[in-house]
């Protein structure tokens, strides 16, 4: 692009007044701003001692859980919609014939690779029976890759751990159940 390109709009910088040219008003403006922040409230959360406030747990996307129904059975019907929706291909389900009369299939194995997951929440949206949900647990750590692959028992235990703090979203959101 050349200087005489018609697409260039030349703007005149606003002319400085005497106060600006004296620099002192700007000097004090800068100094008061930094001084105000120096003694002002701090944004940092001291993490292990202090938990960050999760704004709205209903829409927070943390560790997954597998919900249970009133009889303590896994709600999942092994329809594979979540695994199909998952853009990271981190959900691995083995479905088998259900022992219960109210559904045809249930997951014999339900494995999520938490390291592979991108926490987009598509599985939660895809689930027709609100079986898979993302909780507001945010400090997910592990010492090995194997430890971070969550199987069905682990995902159900996440439900037991969080069910009191976070009731199933469908109830408050008017979901399918």
């Amino acid at each position: 692009m050349k200087p005489d390109d018609p697409n260039i709009a030349w703007l005149e910088a606003p002319r400085l007044g005497l106060a600006d040219r004296m620099y002192l008003p700007l000097f004090f403006e800068g100094l008061t701003t930094t001084s105000r922040h120096l003694i002002g409230p701090k944004m940092t959360v001291s993490f292990p001692e202090e938990r960050p406030a999760v704004g709205n747990p209903l829409i927070y996307r943390g560790v997954h859980r597998l919900n249970k129904d009133e009889q303590g059975r896994v709600k999942c019907v092994a329809c594979f919609l979540c695994a199909t929706a998952c853009p990271a291909h981190c959900i691995d389900i083995i479905g088998t014939e259900s022992p219960w009369p109210d559904r045809e299939k249930y997951p014999e194995s339900f494995v999520i690779d938490e390291l592979r997951c991108i926490y987009c929440g598509m599985c939660e949206e895809a689930c027709p029976v609100d079986a898979i949900e993302l909780t507001s647990l945010l400090d997910l750590t592990g010492r090995s890759r194997e430890e971070m692959i969550f199987d069905k028992e682990k995902l159900l235990s996440v439900y037991d751990q969080t069910k009191d703090a976070e009731p199933m979203k469908s109830k408050s959101l008017g979901g399918t159940v």
Binding site: P3, D4, P6, A9, W10, E12, L16, L18, R21, M22
Partner: peptide
């Protein structure tokens, strides 16, 4: 001294091309 410097603006340098087409 301060006011003279402020009025003279010796630090301000206009580096833009002299030919300003399209103003």
């Amino acid at each position: 001294g301060w006011v003279v410097v402020a009025l003279a603006q010796p630090v301000t340098a206009d580096n833009r091309p002299r030919e300003r087409v399209g103003i």
